[in-house]
Structures are given as structure tokens and as C-alpha cells.
């Protein structure tokens, strides 16, 4: 049994368990979206590219030998895909420049910006809902979760900061997640 969760999942996919790949997608889709968004600014393109990155990764997974971490490998695919996209879209933009200029009066800027007002409102509501739920958490739960998610501290490091056993950290983080999960579901997210 591999020592790492990613390794275990990758081994499952390589052995023919296609569903195990969905767990990897669920795990890294947000991070990969963020990586792509640093290169590509249209949200629709970010989503399409994100999907493409994972499909490429799935196809290339038989060649993944574990020389690097899975996320490092995935990250490289994402950056390369974004660069390739920029190179090809640059050509497309040049060829379509006249049409874009013609459409300027009709709000071409709004067309280029894939984020709809409804989408923006939804994202903002989600963030506000989560922030409110965070504030309602007991301080020790909130701090443990934020140290993990925002600061990237390990359980050992959090235990050192909070002065409690690692098992307690694990429990606090889990309880914080559960509370947030219940709150988000209650609000329809």
C-alpha cells in the first residue's frame, strides 16, 4: 500500500479504476483552476482548460512513474496547457481583431469577460456564507482549520502552535469542516 493518498489513487487509476481518477479531480480542480487563472483571464476558458488538463492527465497517467509528486506533474500539464492555449488564442485574436473592433459598440468587453453578473453574485454569496459560518465556529476549530487550509501547516505544526496533541488537531479540523459543510448545504451550496 503506498504511503501517500495520491499514490494510492494513482495506482488505482493505473490499474483500471477510472472512478478513482474522479477523486483526484475533486481534490485538485480548485488548485488547477487557480493555476490556469494566473495565465488565462476568461473564466470560461479557465473551466474548459481545467477540464482539458484533467483529461490529458488521465490519458498520460500510464506514463506517470511517480518520479515527482502527482500534483507537481499535474501542475506542469496545467501550465503547459495554459501556455499552449495562449499561443493559439493569440493567433485567433489577431485574425478576429476586426470582428472584435466592430463589436466594440455592442459591449465586446462584456462578451470577453465570461463572468456573468449572476455568477459573480453567487460566488460572493458563497464566500460570505462561508465566512459567516467560520465566525460561528468555536475559535479552536476555526484556527485549526485556517492554519491548515490557509497557511498550509501540517498537523504536527498546528499541534505545536496550539499546544495540543495531533489527534486533537485532527478532530478539530474535521469538526470545523463538518460544521461548514452542514451550513453550506443548508444554504443551498
Amino acid at each position: 500500500m503506498p504511503e501517500d493518498t495520491d499514490q494510492a489513487l494513482v495506482a488505482r487509476v493505473q490499474a483500471g479504476d477510472r472512478d478513482a481518477f474522479n477523486l483526484l479531480v475533486a481534490r485538485y480542480q480548485w488548485k488547477i483552476g487557480g493555476v490556469i487563472a494566473r495565465h488565462v483571464f476568461d473564466p470560461r476558458d479557465v473551466e474548459d482548460l481545467c477540464q482539458e488538463v484533467f483529461i490529458r492527465a488521465y490519458r498520460a497517467l500510464p506514463g506517470f512513474r511517480g518520479d515527482s509528486l502527482f500534483y507537481t506533474w499535474l501542475y506542469r500539464i496545467a501550465v503547459n496547457s495554459a501556455k499552449n492555449f495562449l499561443a493559439s488564442s493569440g493567433r485567433r485574436m489577431r485574425s478576429a481583431s476586426v470582428a472584435v473592433e466592430d463589436a466594440a459598440q455592442a459591449g465586446a468587453a462584456a462578451l470577453r469577460d465570461g463572468a456573468t453578473p449572476e455568477g459573480n453574485i453567487l460566488q460572493r454569496e458563497l464566500s460570505q456564507c462561508l465566512q459567516a459560518a467560520l465566525r460561528n465556529l468555536p475559535a479552536v476549530f476555526r484556527e485549526a482549520l485556517l492554519m491548515r487550509e490557509m497557511d498550509g501547516l501540517s498537523y504536527d505544526e498546528i499541534a505545536g502552535v496550539m499546544g495540543c496533541p495531533v489527534g486533537t488537531v485532527r478532530s478539530r479540523i474535521f469538526r470545523a469542516r463538518e460544521a461548514l459543510s452542514v451550513e453550506l448545504q443548508a444554504r443551498g451550496f
Binding site: 480542480q29 480548485w30 488548485k31 483552476g33 487557480g34 490556469i36 487563472a37 473564466p43 479557465v46 473551466e47 481545467c50 455568477g119 453567487l122 460566488q123 458563497l126 464566500s127 462561508l130 482549520l145 485556517l146 487550509e149 490557509m150
Partner: peptide, 9 residues
């Protein structure tokens, strides 16, 4: 929490 959801709907 990390704000990564803004890029993926």
C-alpha cells in the same frame, strides 16, 4: 477558503 472557487463555477 483560499478563494480558488472564483475561477471554477
Amino acid at each position: 477558503l483560499r478563494g480558488e472557487h472564483r475561477h471554477i463555477k
